[in-house]
Design a protein around this nucleic acid. Structure first.
Length: 462
RNA sequence: UCCUUCUUAGCUCAGUUGGUUAGAGCACAUGACUGUUAAUCAUGGGGUCCCUGGUUCGAGUCCAGGCUGGGGAGCCA
């Protein structure tokens, strides 16, 4: 007999039919003659109720069906006699795949703190919260590919191991096969990476952008979606050492096109979540953030506020608000400044553009004013920077000048610079932190709770 | 990395001025109960009070250092 998913039974099960379900016991309620088992298989947040006529089953067998156990149940799907569910299964046969000793199984019927669940990340997928988050993570991943595919973008697999340390996005993890006790040394007594696997120093990527640009200047519209690694010692609710990033790059796009794409993209993902993740969103709305669904609708219905860095600085200086850090043109905005603009002043997502060139990366397009670059940061309430992007500098001489000004070794970047020597074109792109998007659409507060197995400083368990 | 705060039963937490045998709710076990919804009721078992050192007649409690966790900041997505 074929297994039916709980989701299918609850949505379209025909009462009166014989069914087989398999899943994990969330709770069991006993009385003398009848027992009720709440069974979940992860296909949907809801459980199906199994009704057990105690007289028909062995007492010890029933006892081992406790919270956390994995079972298969064959029985008759019927209209529920009790309140709280429309259908339920009257058990005829039950098979125990795996018991879960109630004395040692860590998950209880009652709620647990997210901090505790992080310590048992191998079991937390079996909770309502992580079921909801992981289903939504899948839905968002799928929606990302669908959005770009429908627009004719090409999904590009950029390398995870990179030989360039010039990506400029922070500290990197080294990749090596050298003997860690006695590595080969060069004439100067330093580690000789010529003897390493790749014959040079290599690291895990901090961004697929540079390679993305190589392909965008051939296929026009591309995106990447892959893991990204930052060895920063960041201990916050919005940073991971290993995270997933989406980076579209489009030839012939300028900064306005880039902003339009970013706003359309984010709104598409939010509307996809509202349309396809209703049950999970309702659960998260009830349990974690009573305004979650309302906030998603709000973002969808209002245009993002677009203004320049310079205008933003003016607003902050004239706000009369006391900040811990002074607002000064030329320095990067602090979290408190961004929050003021997004949460107090405009009360909606904000796109800040045209930052001073000194505080942005070397590859951003230099403006005629000589002071700013065509950068854009999309700022979201509660999260801060969810997207960072720019139009890229396509002029070979200007780009090379900037590389030299910043003391970047241009022999590491010859291939990148070559795109500006051969058939260069205006182009633009951005990076969306996938887990930051997940924070926003799930209403969760800690980035460690929107990825199955988080990697953070001092933590690579599971 | 910096600031701040916490760590007591499987989980969530009380624990008075430093004083005998460290408590509660939930969970778990046993029993009761014909339909429960985080079932209910009764009974019971369960502790390296985070670690190291110090002060003291005596430390869960006070002091110092450290680990882990939480919150904030920086770096950023």
């Amino acid at each position: 007999m074929k297994r039916t998913k709980v989701k299918v039974l609850l949505n379209s099960g025909q009462p009166g039919s014989e069914v087989l379900v398999k899943g994990w016991v969330r709770s069991k309620r006993d009385s003398k003659g009848v027992a009720f088992i709440a069974l979940n298989d992860g296909s949907v947040i809801h459980n199906i109720q199994i009704v057990v006529d105690v007289a028909n089953f062995d007492e010890n067998a029933l006892k081992s069906i406790s919270t956390g156990a994995c079972i298969a149940v064959k029985g008759l799907l019927v209209q529920s006699l009790g309140k709280g569910q429309s259908v339920e299964i009257q058990a005829r046969e039950m098979e125990l795949y795996g018991a879960a000793d109630p004395e040692t199984f860590p998950l209880q019927k009652k709620g647990h703190t997210l901090e505790f669940l992080r310590e048992i990340a191998h079991l937390r997928p079996r909770t309502n919260t992580f079921g909801a988050v992981l289903r939504m993570r899948h839905a968002m991943s799928y929606a990302i590919h669908k959005f770009f595919n429908d627009k004719g973008f090409v999904y590009v697999h950029t390398p995870i191991i990179t030989g360039s340390d010039a990506e400029g996005a922070g500290a990197m993890f080294r990749v090596t096969t050298l003997d860690d006790q006695k590595p080969p040394l060069n004439e100067l007594g330093h580690v000789d990476y010529r003897e390493d696997f790749f014959g040079k120093e290599t690291n895990l990527t901090v961004s697929g952008q540079l390679e993305g640009e190589l392909v965008a200047t051939a296929l026009t519209e591309i995106y990447t979606f892959g893991p990204t690694f930052r060895a920063e010692n960041s201990n916050t609710t919005r940073h991971l050492a290993e995270f997933w990033m989406i980076e579209p790059e489009v030839a012939f796009n300028e900064l306005d096109d880039n902003m339009n794409l970013a706003e359309e993209f984010l709104k598409y993902l939010i509307s996809y979540a509202l349309e396809h993740c209703k049950d999970d969103l309702e659960f998260l709305n009830n349990m974690y953030d009573k305004e979650l669904i309302q906030k998603l609708h709000f973002v969808l219905e209002h245009p993002f506020q677009r203004l320049s860095y310079t205008e933003g600085v003016e607003i902050l200086r004239n706000s009369g608000q006391k900040f811990e850090f002074k607002v000064e043109w030329g320095t990067d905005l602090q979290s408190e400044h961004e929050r003021y603009l997004v949460e107090k002043h405009f009360q909606r997502p904000v796109i800040l553009t045209d930052y001073p060139k000194e505080i942005k990366a070397f590859y951003m397009k230099q403006s005629a004013d000589g002071k700013t670059v065509r950068a854009m940061d999309v700022l979201f309430p509660g999260i801060g920077e969810i997207i960072g992007g720019s139009q890229r500098e396509e002029n070979y001489d200007k780009l090379l000048n900037r590389v030299n000004e910043l003391g970047i070794k241009n022999e590491d970047l010859w291939w990148y610079l070559d795109t500006r020597r051969f058939g260069t074109c205006p182009h633009a792109g951005f990076g969306l932190g996938f887990e930051r998007l997940m924070l926003f659409v799930t209403g969760m507060n800690n980035i460690r709770d929107v990825i199955p197995f988080p990697r953070t400083p001092k933590n690579a368990e599971f």
